[in-house]
Amino acid sequence: MEPDFSAMRASIVSGAPETATALAKQAVAFGIPALDAINQGFVLGMAEVGEQFARRQMFLPDMLASAEAMKAAMSVLEPELMRQGAERPNAGTVILGTTKGDIHEIGKTLVGTLLTAHGFKVFDLGVDVTCDQFVEKAQETHADVVGVSALLTTTMRGQKSVVEALGRAGLRPTLKVIVGGAPVTRQWAQEIGADGYAKDAVNAVALTRGLLEKKVAAGDVAV
């Protein structure tokens, strides 16, 4: 049985979690390596979603549905990946979370899904995350990037606190901090000493890649 990579890709583009789950299970049953199913099937779907979003052919509700489908496929394939002793090459480790007092998660979740699709190892701390939680997780995972989301002008200040807390913990020399959210601007990112800002999830992927390339160039990351 030939693996139907194009159907896997299509299940992500059309945002169909049930189909994505079924195709992932089928791949496992047919003995297709989980890594192949991810890289040659599902991930390509997510990449297409990103492109279509940038071209304004897909919109946020579509992208969320695609993200759900991606999650569904990965929840089948990730345990399989571990069982097979295989590992996706890690493009970088990223910690994500929404600031203390803020319970908005859609934007951050999208960023996480897209980063995962593009080969990053993502730890999503969820919403209402304290500075200490960001610091602890970053230390524990030797993270390359911390992404802090905020949707309110009031909780936006929390991004500054996270940058400061990471600094106090001595992590800033090797750790990049990126910020996002509706009220956030590039200027604000500069003001609080963050390393980058992206206006949407697609740009967040490009931003993260760009920052890590710079790190590699500077010799910070062992590859």
């Binding site: 919109f59 946020l60 509700p61 579509d62 969320l64 549905a65 759900e68 859609i106």
Partner: peptide
């Protein structure tokens, strides 16, 4: 609301792009 199926089904009719 952004995650609801009806949002995805109906937003193109409701909003002009």
């Amino acid at each position: 609301f952004l995650k609801l199926k009806e949002t995805r089904t109906l937003f193109r009719q409701e909003q002009h792009f």
